[in-house]
């Protein structure tokens, strides 16, 4: 479904991703793990198109998207969520989600007809809100939501575009245990219809959800495979998992 071939990105003085090759298969939850600063977010941005790659090739669903604009990738069914929450803070929850639905459903070069008259947009937005557990908060301004709710909306915005593949950058970041469980349950529910590339530091979540895992260290993929194999991998233990898993 998604294939990276020798993708690299260099910032001034830092090689953030270095010759990354990676394959995400249709229907799987593929976890991307690695220490802080490994280049995970950079890679997600390269895949979503918000950062241009210096080298390499990215193919998605039969298309070469290496040079495609971010919105074109979304149109092909590739959406992302952000590690640092990025929502429309002054919109209500419902308007946030309706906007994402609107972006997917036809052109927005419609200047006269009020959006409010488009019932179907809001129906679909409501159903996404239900899925992410925000049905009770539809008319709350996004900025006023609790952190966990904002994180849910963050993921909801990506899901509302009805992607084939969703890139989730640390969806559990900063969440309490209870909120985390809800998020894990959400990912578990959507996996039947959406392929997931999951960046996450929470190993518990990773091993519960992932079909396969890739490990990124210093911008390089040092291992890729089934969770058991990764757990057992000597190199991974040394570089990253350390005693945590050994214990």
């Amino acid at each position: 479904m998604l294939e990276l071939r020798r993708v690299s990105k260099r910032f001034v003085g830092v090689v953030a991703t270095d010759d990354v090759s990676l394959e995400v298969r249709s229907g799987e939850v593929h976890a991307l793990i690695g220490p802080n600063g490994a280049g995970k977010t950079t890679l997600i941005s390269q895949i979503s198109g918000s950062l241009p790659s210096d080298r390499g090739e990215i193919r998605f669903d039969g298309h070469d998207i290496t040079r495609a604009r971010p919105y074109e990738r979304v149109k092909l069914g590739l959406a992302r969520s952000y590690q640092v929450t990025s929502i429309f803070k002054r919109f209500t929850v419902l308007d946030n989600l309706a906007l994402a639905v609107q972006a997917r459903s036809g052109s927005s070069f419609s200047f006269w007809r009020p959006v409010a008259a488009e019932g179907s947009l809001f129906d679909e937005a409501r159903s996404v809100a239900g899925e992410i557990g925000l049905s009770q908060k539809l008319s709350s301004i996004a900025a006023t939501l609790a952190h966990g709710e904002q994180r849910a909306l963050e993921v909801g915005l990506a899901l509302a575009t009805r992607p084939k593949l969703v890139l989730l950058d640390e969806p559990l970041a900063g969440m309490g245990p209870e909120e985390a469980q809800r998020m894990i349950a959400l990912i578990d529910r959507v996996r039947s219809r959406v392929t997931v590339l999951l960046v996450e530091h929470d190993m518990d979540a990773v091993f519960r959800l992932a079909n396969r895992i890739s490990v990124l260290v210093n911008g390089r993929v040092i291992a890729s495979g089934a969770p058991e194999a990764i757990k057992a991998d000597e190199q991974v233990r040394k570089a990253y998992l350390g005693d945590e898993v050994a214990a």
Binding site: S86, L99, P114
Partner: peptide, 21 residues
Amino acid sequence: SRFGRVVIAIRENEARAEAIG
């Protein structure tokens, strides 16, 4: 209208607007 909502959304958060397509 749809157009107006998009214009305001871009003002509010341009990167995210592009990232939802």
